[in-house]
């Protein structure tokens, strides 16, 4: 399962879900569902999110169980 720090990093940038959604060209619901781990975004969307939040992709998304080894 894909884990993420989207909510934390979004808050750090003081973006609302709507603002972030607009930046990356998706709906607010999509951001909400990614934050809850209910939906795994495509590579394209994941890269757009990482760019909008000014982090590397692997700082934003990682596979469950890999956090202890990789991060």
């Amino acid at each position: 399962m894909l884990k993420n720090r989207l909510k934390e990093l979004r808050a750090r940038h003081s973006f609302t879900q709507i603002e972030l959604a607009k930046k990356v060209g998706v709906t607010r619901q999509t951001i909400g569902f990614i934050e809850k781990g209910e939906f795994s975004p495509s590579v394209t969307l994941a890269l757009k999110l990482a760019k909008a939040l000014e982090v590397d992709l692997n700082e934003l998304f990682w596979l469950e169980g890999e956090e202890e080894h990789e991060r």
Partner: peptide
């Protein structure tokens, strides 16, 4: 089909 989540 508003975006990839709704597509899904």
């Amino acid at each position: 089909e508003d975006d990839e989540f709704f597509d899904e």
